[in-house]
Structures are given as structure tokens and as C-alpha cells.
């Protein structure tokens, strides 16, 4: 195993250990609920960070993929009585298809058109959900979504969902890391640095960008399905454009393009509004402010800060 591989394995083991021990310390089910939402965000933001870090494109529509996963899962399982796991798979397929429809035309172009296409896509998604109220429940939301079940046990309570969602989040990190340390990942990082040279060496730039965009959307879609089956009720407000901005903010706070950036950003920002109740009302302003301050003072986020502190240490001890 390479040195980088060992470091990642250690970090992952530390996180897994924390995940195992944390429920012993957390007695309050509300706090467990916050940890569960945090894991959902870790999944979405890790996926979004793959797109930003590898393809160098920003999506302002990831909340729509999150929402599409949630609504397809909800409608298929509640309205049509499909097994929730099958509904989750169907939702993933729908999300991949939507990502292809958005990505194929826009990612062939040289400029950053994806950000506009995803922004528009998110607005359309919200409108469609609000308008098709027969199917989606409209502005009042969709309720009565059945939970997922595992080994004959329904995953309804906070504790059992905790195990499921954190296992999924850890798996998401492993997949992201596997992708980074591969021929495909190298091609992606190369095309971000110098697209013409990457193409001259055989990297199909448009295909790779589209591929990573679809994978990134799949992270969001799967988290959306888990979200729907966990809460049993979903509403359009959870998937609007402001949520997309929040997700990008989490990427920036954590560290754009860093493997752990998604985790750090989601882990830091998810509980913050809950802890600082004053911000609840002004959440969007707060996120906007954080975004601005970070871009100016700490463009590489928490992961960058950590790397800088580590790099500084040997100098100080010398």
C-alpha cells in the first residue's frame, strides 16, 4: 500500500471508530437525528466535491438530484407500493438519466455552462414538484413514505437509521477515494489542469466530465432516497436552489476537491444552525457570508487549513 493509501485507511478507521462510539455518548434522540442528517449531507457533499475537484465544474442543482431521489423513491414506494429498496434503485436510475440529459450537451462545451444548466434544472425541478401536486403533494409535501427494512426489521428509529446512513457515508468516501486513485481519476485530475494535453494523451474529456457528473448526482440521489425513507415525509423546500447553494458552501468550507473536504464541510455546517439558533432565521445570509469570507481568506477550506498547519509544524519544532 502506498503512503497515501495508508494515511487514508487510518483516517477512515478513525472515523469508523468515532461512528461506532458516538451513539454511546449521545443519549438524546434529537442529537442522533442531527448526526443522521449530517451523514446524509456528507454523502451529498462528497459527491459534489468529486465534480468540483475532478472536473473543475460547480453544480448549483445538486439539491434537485437529492430531491429527485427522494420523490421518485417516495412516489414509487408509497403510491405504487414498490419495495423501498427497489424504489431506491429506480430513483438512482432516474437521477443518472437526468444528470446525463443535463451533462451531455453542456459538458462538451469549453466554458462553464454546467453551472447555468444545473441552476436552471433546479428551478424547473422545484416548479414541477409544486405544480404536479396530484403526484408529489405540491407545496404541502409528500407523506406516508414507508421505511427501508433490513433483515426483516424496518429502519424507522434514529438509532438503526444511524448505522445504515453512516455505513453509506463511509462507503461513499471509499468509492470517492478509489476513483481518485485510479486511471480514470488521474485522467480527470489531468483534464482539470490542462484539458488539451489530457485529450492529446487519450483522455476523452467530455465523456469523463459527464461520467463524474453522473456519479456525483448519484451520491445526491441516493442520499435523497435515504432521506425520504427515513423521515417518511418530504417537502419541496428541502430541495430548492438555496439548498444547492448550501451544498456548494459545504464544499467550500470543507475544501474544494479534497477527499475529506466534503466530510469536513458537512460535519461542520450541518449542526451549526441547530447549535446557533439565532442563525435559523438568517441561515441563507449566514451561508452567503461564510461563502464570501472563505473565498477571500481561506480558499482551500478546512482541509487546506489542516494541510497548512501540518506543513508548518516541523518548521516550528526545528
Amino acid at each position: 500500500m502506498t503512503r497515501g493509501g495508508r494515511i487514508f485507511a487510518l483516517q477512515l478507521a478513525a472515523l469508523a471508530l468515532a461512528v461506532l462510539l458516538l451513539p454511546l455518548l449521545v443519549g438524546n434522540p434529537y442529537h442522533l437525528n442531527v448526526l443522521n442528517v449530517m451523514a446524509l449531507m456528507v454523502i451529498v457533499v462528497t459527491g459534489l466535491n468529486l465534480l468540483i475537484g475532478f472536473a473543475g465544474h460547480i453544480s448549483l442543482g445538486h439539491a434537485a438530484f437529492f430531491g429527485l431521489g427522494a420523490y421518485v423513491s417516495a412516489i414509487l414506494s408509497a403510491t405504487y407500493g414498490l419495495n423501498p429498496w427497489l424504489a431506491l434503485l429506480a430513483a438512482a436510475a432516474a437521477v443518472a438519466l437526468l444528470a446525463l440529459v443535463i451533462g451531455l450537451p453542456t459538458l462538451r462545451l469549453a466554458g462553464n455552462y454546467l453551472v447555468m444548466a444545473t441552476l436552471g434544472g433546479n428551478l424547473i425541478f422545484t416548479t414541477v414538484v409544486l405544480q404536479m401536486d396530484q403526484l408529489t403533494g405540491g407545496p404541502s409535501g409528500f407523506s406516508g413514505i414507508p421505511p427501508l427494512s433490513l433483515f426483516g426489521r424496518a429502519i424507522v428509529d434514529d438509532q438503526s437509521f444511524y448505522w445504515l446512513v453512516w455505513a453509506a457515508a463511509l462507503l461513499g468516501l471509499v468509492v470517492a477515494r478509489n476513483l481518485a486513485q485510479s486511471r480514470v481519476g488521474r485522467g480527470l485530475r489531468a483534464l482539470k489542469d490542462a484539458p488539451a494535453a489530457a485529450a492529446a494523451l487519450g483522455v476523452d474529456v467530455a465523456r469523463y466530465k459527464t461520467g463524474v457528473f453522473v456519479i456525483s448526482a448519484l451520491y445526491a440521489g441516493l442520499a435523497g432516497s435515504l432521506h425520504a425513507h427515513y423521515f417518511g415525509i418530504i417537502a419541496p423546500k428541502s430541495f430548492d436552489i438555496f439548498v444547492s447553494v448550501e451544498l456548494v458552501t459545504m464544499c467550500l468550507v470543507g475544501g474544494m476537491g479534497s477527499l475529506w473536504g466534503g466530510f469536513l464541510g458537512a460535519a461542520f455546517l450541518t449542526p451549526l444552525p441547530q447549535v446557533l439558533h439565532v442563525f435559523e432565521e438568517y441561515k441563507d445570509i449566514f451561508y452567503g457570508g461564510v461563502l464570501l469570507a472563505l473565498l477571500i481568506y481561506q480558499p482551500h477550506g478546512l482541509a487546506g487549513l489542516w494541510a497548512r498547519l501540518r506543513a508548518r509544524r516541523p518548521l516550528e519544532s526545528a
Binding site: 486511471r183 488521474r186 485522467g187 485530475r189 489531468a190 482539470k192 490542462a194 494535453a197 494523451l201
Partner: peptide
């Protein structure tokens, strides 16, 4: 047009793409 973020070895590894 070297890939500045990649290591020297990784640059050549992309050459084998």
C-alpha cells in the same frame, strides 16, 4: 501543458492512458 497538480510520475502515467 504539464499537469501541475499531479506528481511527475502521475503525469507520465496519464501518458499511458
Amino acid at each position: 501543458q504539464v499537469f501541475g497538480q499531479l506528481s511527475v510520475l502521475e503525469n507520465v502515467m496519464v501518458g499511458l492512458h
